[in-house]
Design a protein around this nucleic acid. Structure first.
Length: 295
DNA sequence: ATTAATGTTCAGAA
DNA sequence: TTTCTGAACATTAA
């Protein structure tokens, strides 16, 4: 699923083809059910056609085309969205197709494909975009500092694994990389945030930056369902370097203990029970499941 | 043949 | 305020 490394790979894939070019024509190539387009198709089309793409950026798990009138075309792939230059995996779930070209230059197709259709494509003006980012996204996970993490999460009761998925706290981490990051720092995923010390936050931020940068270098992870592809419809390679994610029952690459799968906030968490021990001060308190009752 | 699981995000509830 | 739950969706495994 597209998390930061996969979305960054998409961004890098489409940047050389979109940057500086003009959106000439757009269309909805199939009659698939309406998906998360905002505004609706005819208005979005009007906003985008004829505009030059000044920059291709990433914000958390979103790819953002900066247009020459200040408009922003925001792709949020969520579960199964892909930005493609190559032919899509199938025609049926090809949601949107843009054409970009330089005057007199070659014409390129930029496609948005989304099998499950949970993704969103939105046009917004500069101010609206800035407000949105401010409202929903924390500092980018690729460059986040320990101080930022501690400030935003340090006082909470949430388990650290759950907290890392909070995009407003830190933007870009998803279920897969949260597991890999916590393994790297040898933190038990159920550790409550309040139990981490300043030094822990520093190490956690460092591991976050390292794991994500590594995954970007490998062009992300293509999981068993094979959904994720880069812009050229090729698989990523980081799935071959996962230490814990999806490896329940298999030996920990460090100590050999069997990797465990637990459920937190209705999602799978994978970790090594020997490398990632719960701290003594926290045992018994961290495992409480339901909401803490206040008085 | 239903049902659960998959993973991201948001609205709305606790 | 903070945290939690369910829904949105498509597809596959049980």
């Amino acid at each position: 699923m597209p998390e930061l490394p996969e979305v960054e790979t998409m961004r890098r894939g489409v940047e050389p083809v979109c940057g500086g070019r003009i959106v000439r024509a757009t269309r909805t190539p199939c009659r698939c059910r309406p998906i998360g387009l905002r505004p609706a198709w005819p208005a979005l089309k009007r906003r985008v056609e004829g505009r030059r793409v000044l920059d291709v950026r990433r914000a958390g798990k979103r790819v953002v085309l900066v247009l020459d009138d200040g408009g922003r075309l925001v792709f949020q792939p969520r579960m199964s969205g892909l930005l493609l230059l190559a032919d899509p995996p199938d025609r049926e779930h090809l949601r949107l197709q843009f054409t970009v070209e330089q005057t007199g230059g070659p014409v390129h197709a930029l496609r948005y494909w989304d099998r499950r259709g949970l993704g969103q494509v939105q046009w917004m003006d500069e101010a609206e975009y800035a407000a949105q980012v401010e409202r929903v996204l924390g500092p980018d996970a690729l460059t986040v500092t320990g101080e930022q993490l501690r400030q935003r999460l340090g006082a909470g009761r949430r388990a650290i694994k759950v907290a890392l998925l909070d995009q407003h706290a830190v933007a870009g981490i998803g279920n897969l990389y949260a597991a890999e990051i916590l393994f790297r720092v040898r933190l038990h995923p159920a550790t409550p945030c309040w139990a981490l010390r300043e030094r822990d936050w520093e190490r956690l931020a460092e591991a976050t930056r390292q794991v994500l940068a590594e995954a970007v270098a490998y062009e992300g992870s293509t999981l068993g369902d094979g959904t994720y592809r880069n812009a050229l419809n090729q698989e990523g390679n980081y799935q071959n370097h996962h230490r814990v994610y999806g490896r329940a029952g298999q030996p920990c690459p460090v100590c050999g203990a069997a990797i465990r799968r637990i459920v937190q906030a209705q999602r799978s968490t994978f970790f090594c029970p020997r490398c990632q021990r719960l701290r003594r001060a926290v045992r018994g308190q961290a495992v409480c499941k339901g909401p803490v009752r206040r008085r």
